[in-house]
Nucleic acid binder design. Sequence first.
RNA 1: GCAGAAGUGGUGGAAUUGGUAGACACGCUGGACUUAAAAUCCAGUGGACAGUAAUGUCCGUGCGGGUUCAAGUCCCGCCUUCUGUACCA
Length: 937
Amino acid sequence: MEYNFREIEAKWQKFWADNQTFKAENTSDKPKFYVLDMFPYPSGAGLHVGHPLGYIASDIYARYKRHKGFNVMHPQGYDSFGLPAEQYAIQTGQHPAITTEANIATYRKQLDKIGFSFDWSREVRTSDPNYYKWTQWIFIQLFESYYCNEANQARAISELIQIFETEGNSKINAACDEDTAVFSAEDWKNYSEEEQQKILLKYRLTFLSETEVNWCPALGTVLANDEIVNGVSERGGHTVVRKKMKQWSMRITAYAQRLLDGLDKIDWPQPLKDAQTYWIGRSEGAMVSFKVADFDAEIEVFTTRPDTIYGVSFMTLAPEHELVSKITTPQQKEAVEAYVKATAKRSELDRMADVKTISGIFTGAYALHPFTGEKVQIWIGDYVLASYGTGAVMAVPCGDERDYAFAKHFNIEIPNIFEGVDISNEACSTKEGIKIANSDFLNGLTYKKAMKRIIYEIEQKGIGYGKINYRLRDAVFSRQRYWGEPFPVYYKNGLPQMISKKYLPIVLPEVEKYLPTEDGKPPLGNATVWAWDTVKNEVVSIDLINGETIFPLELNTMPGWAGSSQYFNRYMDANNNEEMFSKEAINYWQDVDLYIGGSEHATGHLLYSRFWQKFMFDRGFVPTDEYAKKLINQGMITGTSAFVYRVEGENKFVSKGLKSNFKVQPIHSDVSFVNASDELDIEAFKNWREEYKEAEFILEDGKYIVGREVEKMSKSKYNVVNPDEICEEYGADSLRLFEMFLGPLEQSKPWKTSGISGVYSFLKKLWKLYIVNGEFSVSDDAPTKDELKTLHKTIKKVEEDIANFSFNTSVSTFMIAVNELTALKCNKRAILEPLAIIIEPYAPHIAEELWHKLGHTSSVATEDFPIFEAQHLVESSKEYPVSFNGKMRFKLELPLDMSKEDIEKTVLAHQKTQDQLQGRTPKKVIIVPGKIINIVG
RNA sequence: GCAGAAGUGGUGGAAUUGGUAGACACGCUGGACUUAAAAUCCAGUGGACAGUAAUGUCCGUGCGGGUUCAAGUCCCGCCUUCUGUACCA
C-alpha cells in the first residue's frame, strides 16, 4: 500500500469542498479567530512558488486554531482592479473584465491544488459591482464627513453646517484647506448655495483640489508616490513629470497623529512600524513670518530649529512659491523667470539624478529678520519643495547641510551661532550638548531650553507659533484609468454631487477605447452612456446632458488602494446586499487576529487601510480603530537561477568547472533542465532554442555542470517554479511542508526544488508507520515510555513553534518524531492517532486520509489538539557535558536529583577529569544543575 | 545620506532566558538491492594535524576589541550584503 498523494489529495479536496468543511459561521459558542491573507492581484502569469508562502503559513495557523477550539474565519479573494489588465486591454482590445475573469479562474485552480482551508463562500473581488458598491459607499461617507480636531474624530458634515449657521467658522478647529477664509454666521447665510458648497469642500474628508501630481504621459495617468520608483513609473519605467490637475484627495493628514499613536497598540513588525513612522514624518518646530523689505508681503516658513534663528543669513523660496513673481526686482526678473521655467520643465527623474547639483537664483528682494531687523537676501532654489511646509525656508547655513552648501556655492555669508564649534568645513546639525552663541537672549542656552524660549518669544511678538508638521501629504484619490472603481459623483455647475446610496453601484461604463481621449480626458471620456439623470436616477447617454436634470458623471476612477482598504471588513458579511456588513457580523468578528502579507505594502495599503478603519470607527461603523492586532511579513522566495557558459564567439558551452580556461559569457538556462546535482539535461537544453540545436558541450567527468546564483524569481531569468508542477510531482502536502521548511517565515530565502525530496520522503516514512506487511493497520497495545516521550515532546515543540511562527522548526520536529518512531517500530494507535492531528495543519491531505483509515468518519480538521502532558518528559538523569575552561571534553551521566556537592565530588574523582587536569588543582568548579559542569584551572 | 534587517559547513538552515555550535534536510562519498537506472535502505560527512585504530589536540558562527567560569547569543568599534526611503527645512 503506497502513499498515493495524487489520489489522496484530489479526494480530500473534493470532500472539503462538498462538505464546506471550512465555512465559518457568523454565530458560534466558540471564540472567534480571524486569519487574513493579503488578497492577490490575479495577474496573467499565474502563481509561482513564492506566492503561496504566506497563505501556507496562515493556513497552518488557521487549521491549528480550529483544533484549539476556535471558530476560525480564513477568507480569500481578489484585488482585481489594476493596471496590467488595462494595459493588456489597450494592446489587444480585450475587455479587462474578461482577462480578469480568466486570470481568477487560473488562480483559483492553482490555489485549490494546495489544499487551503479558505472559506470561499466569502470570496470578494474588488472589480465586482456588488463589491465596489461598498467602496463607492465609503467614498460618499468620507465626502459627508469632516475632521474635528477638538474631538479628534471625523464627524458628519451636517454638524459643521449647523456650526456655520450659528457662529461661522472662526472658532472651528477642524482639518481644512490652508486657504480657507474666515466668515461669520451672517456671511454664511448670505452665501449662495454654490459658495457654501465650495467652502464645505475645503472641510470634507474627501475633496476636490488643484493638486500638483505625478503625471506619466506614457501611461496617460497620475501616479502615487509609491507607484514611482527612482523617478520613473514602477510599471514600464516611463518618465514622470509634475503637473497641476483637479483631483479628488483624501484628507489623511487629519489622521497623521492617530496613525502614529495607533502603532503602539498593534503587534506589527518593528521595521514596518518604522517605515510608517518615517513616512508620516512628524516634526516639531515653529511657523515664523518674515516681512519682505519694501513690500507689503510676508514670507511664512516652517522650521524645526527656531532656536537657530539668529543664524539666518538668507531665505529660499521654492520656484513655485506664489511670492516669487511679486517680489522679484526688475533687474532680476529675466533671470528668475528663466530659472522657474527651467525647473518646471525638469522631470522628477532629472531632479533625482542630480540631487547634488546646487542651483538657485537671487530675487533681488530682501526680507527683514524678525529679531535683528537686518536685511537678508531672498533666493529661489529647487531644493526647497513647494509641497512641504510653506514652500519657503529660513536658511541657517551654519546649522543645516543644504543651506550650508547653498551658501558656499553662492558665496553667502555663514554666521556662526554655536559656541566653540568650527563651521569652516561643514554645518553643525547636532542638537544635543551644544550651546547657542551670538543670539541675544538665547546665548548660552542648549537646544531644549532655547527651543522653549524662542517659541515663547515668537508667540509673544505675534510673528509665529509653535507647530507640529508632518511629511505625510493628503492622498490623491483620482486616477485617469479605465479599470478601477467609478466615482458615485456627477457635476452640477462644476460642483461635485454625490449619488444616493440606493442607486449604487454606479457600474463602470463600456468604452470603445481604453486610452485617454484625444483632448486629454481620462478613458471614461470615451463612454457614450455616462451621464446622470437626477429624475430617473440612472446612468444615461451623454447626449442627454442638459445642465438641468441630466449631468456629466466623473471621468476619473479610484486608485488601486481603494478596494483593498476595507475588504477585510467586507469578508465578515460578504454576501450582504443591504449593508457593507451587518452590525451583528462586525460585532462578532470585530477585527483581524492575524494578518499575513508582504512588507512592500508598508506605506501604501497598510497605511491607507488604517486610515479608513479609523474613519469607519469615528463614524460608528466598526468597533475598533485598528483592524489587525497582529501582522507578519512573510519574506520573499527568490529563485536559484542556472547559468551555462558560452565560449565567446562560438556555439560551444563549457561546464562550470572548466570555464576559467575559456573566455565565456554566462547565459541563463531554464531551471527545469537542471537536476539536484546541478547537472544540465543537455538534450532538453538543445531543444529549448533553435540556436542551441547544434551547440557543442565541453563536459567535466562526463557531465555538464551549471553555475547557480540566487536572484529574484522572474520569467526573464528562467528561474520561475510553478506550484502546479510541484503538486503534480510531489503533492500539495510536500509543497506545503517544503515551503515552511525552507527557513524562517519572515526571512527571504532561495528556492531550490531539489530540497523537496527531503520532505517527500518524510511523508512516505510517516505513511509507513501506519502500514504493517503492506496493509493499513495499527495496534491497540499500550504505548511505551519512549513512544509517549516522542509524542509529547513533539506536541510541546510544535505548539511553541506555531506560537512563534517558527514553522520551519516544526517541520524538523515532525521529521525527528517520525525518525524516532520508525526506530522504535511504533505502530500504536495511542501514538499514531494524535500524531495525525498535530501534523494536519501542515500536511492536511495525508492527515485526513490517515484519520479516516483509523476508522473515523468526520474530518480531522475539527478534532481537539492533543494535550501536552509534561510527565512523559520527566527525566531522572542527565548526560552532563563536562567542560574544562569552557571547552566541552566529555559527557557524564548523572542523576538529576544529585546535589551540587555530590556532582563535584563525582566529577573530580572521574578518571577523565584527572587526565584533563594532569595533576593541576582546579581553581573553581561551576555546576549548573541540569545544564553543565565547567572546571576552571 | 537616512532608517531597518541580516552575516553560522559545499547549500537551506538549527541552537526560546549566555551553558555540549552545526539539529533537521539537501548535496557529496562509500556500501546493499538491481542486468541497469530510478526508488528504497545502511554508514560517513565543519577544517587542520597526529595515530594502523579506538581516539586525541588545535582552529572554527563577517572583522577587531571587551565583559564572563562560559559568548553565535551581551557591550564597544568596524566591514559586507539585502530591503525601504530620498533635498521634509
